[in-house]
Amino acid sequence: MKYLLVQEDEDGVERLWGRCAGVEGLFVEPVPLPREVLILRGCRPEGPLRDALAEPGLLPRGLGDVSVEVLDGDDSVQWWTLVDAVVVAHRPHPDDPARHDIVLGAGVRNDDTWLARLEAPRFDLFAGTTVAAAPMGRCTDVEGLFGPRADPAPVPLELIGCEAVEPLLEGTQRPRRWARGWADLLVLDRHGAVMASRPVGLDVSGARPSVLGDGLEDVTLTDGGDDRPSPAVRPVWEKWYEGAPTEPHTWAPYDARGRAEWLELTTRGWRAPLSGPDRSGGEHHLDGRFVTDVPGLHCAIAEALLGPGRYFGREWNAFKDCLGGGFGVAPPFTLVWHDADVARRALAEVVEDPEGRLTYFEEIVRLLERRGVTVVLR
């Protein structure tokens, strides 16, 4: 059995619902958002948006993902993402020629909402969805943003050769009357250790005797969840299936997407409690030959501090948290960064701080030094 289906009760205790020999549909591409037309009313454009309006002959013009922060007074109350936004057309705003009404095409995703009703909203735009997102302007309204949207149809998941136990067994016998919320699908490596976990819906839409026999069933879950890896990162999972990595640089052959998935797997693969307090002091050596992107940087730092396959943050904020302690190593210590120029050149265009214009590489070095780490660049 390679998969376990478990549900956590109110006391945090995991209850087994079934064991499965295989799963079909674990790796899927996300369902694309439908394209919509939105109008940025009374907009004062900045940055890439201003550049797009400066050359109307080149429209339509892509902006990439655009973040929309909705403010009510001084309070930030909502975040939206306009996925793959494209400037289609624009014209001067009727009441103020210095402003613009801009027609965009985009997929619309609601990221965070704290208030349902807004008294006096305003809308700030940012290029991208990370903390490095640069301002793109401010608008008085985003027409079409709050329109009703149907949830995308769920993508099912097939549990192959499933040994169901109560209460899942009841669901396989009467699937149409079955609705039991969500559970976790635990993925086991070849040694039986949990290498990953993904949430799945427990609604059963079908069950039949499995071709594997021995009283097993093939069970169809109506909704396999949104947090499923892409088929493009399947080789990373296959590598981890062999067991938690023990050799350095095993992540290096993968592209940025694969390395990001590698970091995702480290969060579950090394979740066991620490055997003792954080280690401080001493000298750690970072092999910088393969640090050609942001995920690679975090793979290399974690490996330098804790060893292959270990977790020490997968992006800026998580890395900052890890430096605060509780993850095996804490400052002060010395980090000798070999071949640092590889990362300096590769991340020269990756800017974490739009105001200060420091690159991601420079920000990481500055953060380490601020937290008491002696960084030696070689």
Rank of each mutant, 00 (worst) to 15 (best):
M1V: 09
M1G: 00
Y3D: 08
Y3I: 04
Y3M: 06
V6S: 13
Q7I: 08
E8K: 13
E10H: 15
G12P: 00
E14T: 09
L16R: 13
G18P: 01
E24F: 07
P30K: 02
V37D: 10
L38N: 05
G42H: 10
P48S: 15
D51N: 09
D51E: 13
A54P: 02
E55R: 12
R61I: 09
R61F: 13
R61S: 13
S67L: 15
V68A: 09
D72M: 13
S76Q: 11
S76D: 07
V77D: 10
W80I: 07
W80S: 11
T81N: 11
D84M: 07
A85M: 07
A85Q: 09
V86T: 12
V87R: 01
A89E: 09
P92F: 10
D95S: 13
D96H: 00
H100K: 03
D101S: 14
D101H: 13
V103E: 14
G105F: 11
A106S: 15
N110G: 10
T113N: 06
W114M: 12
P121V: 03
P121L: 06
R122S: 11
R122T: 08
F123S: 07
F123H: 08
L125S: 08
V131Y: 12
G137H: 07
C139F: 03
C139N: 14
R149A: 04
D151K: 11
A153C: 06
E166A: 15
L169N: 05
E170Y: 13
G171L: 12
G171S: 14
G181K: 00
G181A: 07
D184K: 08
L185T: 02
D189T: 08
G192K: 01
S197F: 00
L202P: 01
D203E: 14
G206A: 11
L212E: 04
D214I: 01
D218P: 02
D218Y: 01
L221D: 12
D227I: 05
P235I: 05
W240C: 03
Y241H: 07
A244W: 09
E247K: 12
P248R: 08
W251P: 05
W251M: 03
W251R: 03
Y254R: 07
R259W: 01
A260R: 09
G269F: 00
W270M: 11
S275L: 14
P277Q: 06
G281M: 04
H284T: 02
H285Y: 12
F290D: 14
V291A: 03
T292S: 06
L297G: 00
L305I: 04
L305K: 06
G307V: 03
F312G: 00
F312K: 01
G313V: 00
E315L: 03
E315M: 00
A318L: 06
A318Q: 10
F319G: 02
K320M: 05
G326L: 03
V329H: 04
V329R: 14
P331C: 13
F333I: 05
L335R: 05
W337Q: 08
A343R: 09
R344C: 03
A348K: 11
V350T: 13
E355I: 07
R357T: 02
Y360N: 06
Y360L: 01
F361D: 06
F361L: 04
F361R: 02
E362H: 02
I364V: 15
R366M: 09
R366P: 01
L368A: 04
R371A: 05
V376E: 15
L377P: 10
